[in-house]
Design a protein around this nucleic acid. Structure first.
Length: 239
DNA sequence: AACAATCGCAACCGCAGTCCC
DNA sequence: AGGGACTGCGGTTGCGATTGT
């Protein structure tokens, strides 16, 4: 389970954290917050690198971490989002309050991956297509090649259509920082004909990398809808 | 009971993105 | 503009615990 303690080339301690170290880190962060992970260990009296401190805090010491068994709902959410997003563990974890990306990733590899692959093998051709497309690519490189055409054909007057399109555009943008991709994406996700009016600036802002790290979409109804089976297996995904 | 194989998960590593000077 | 510092992410590893033989 744990790693044997050791020292790296800078003399920083490695391996399993002791209860004393945990207490030091927890006490320090509780009192001062994490203003600079690199400098924090020095002030907290820890002989650890900042990266190790950050990881320990994020994955273990944070007060809002939920530990213990996963519920059926949580597991279903992971499976669905993994099929939808690929191995974007932090994005998936952000949809599971109290769960960390590391924990989600571990749970996937140890439990859900097998289940998912079994489902894939017994799934309908359409479902298999979805899983297959996600197994081999973390994120599409070119939206024009991989964006499901049908998603752009969502009903214009659907209140969610615009934000769903934005979500897709953002997803693709976040996997590429080139201006070419931005222009391509903006071009494809052209909402000028929609009834849901939004300024270009708003669109650009929403298209930043924040999409997957901040609450999915501000409207909770949309988020819950996206997490429903109907969304994953609706016609817009069956391409 | 003893050993081997497998599992579960904390922690590490390297890379990419962002920020700041 | 570009280069260094810092942060965050995803893949991988190491090792104790558990299960099987």
């Amino acid at each position: 389970m744990a790693r044997t303690p050791g020292r790296d080339k800078n003399g920083m301690k490695k391996g399993t954290w002791t209860p004393e170290e945990d207490k030091k880190l927890k006490d320090y962060v509780s009192q001062y917050g994490f203003w600079n992970w690199r400098k924090l260990p020095k002030y907290a009296g820890l002989s650890r690198c900042g990266k190790s401190c950050r990881l320990r805090w994020m994955n273990y010491l944070r007060p809002d971490i939920k530990r213990g068994n996963y519920t059926k709902e949580e597991e279903d959410t992971i499976v669905r989002l993994q099929a939808l997003l690929g191995n974007k563990w932090s994005a998936i974890a952000s949809k599971l309050p109290g769960r960390t990306d590391n924990e989600v990733k571990n749970h996937w590899h140890t439990n859900l991956k097998k289940r998912s692959s079994q489902n894939t093998s017994s799934a309908s051709p359409q479902e298999a297509t979805i899983n297959h497309s996600c197994d081999h690519e973390v994120g599409p490189k070119n939206i024009s090649e991989t964006t499901p055409n049908n998603i752009l054909d969502l009903p214009i007057n659907c209140p969610m259509t615009h934000q769903i399109k934005e979500g897709f555009a953002s997803l693709h943008l976040s996997s590429s920082s080139s201006e070419t991709s931005l222009s391509t994406c903006t071009e494809i996700a052209d909402f000028s004909n929609t009834e849901c009016e939004v300024s270009h600036d708003t669109y650009i802002a929403e298209s930043s990398g924040r999409f997957w790290t901040e609450p999915f979409i501000t409207d909770n109804n949309i988020e819950s809808w996206l997490l429903q089976d109907e969304w994953l297996f609706s016609p817009v995904f069956l391409y």
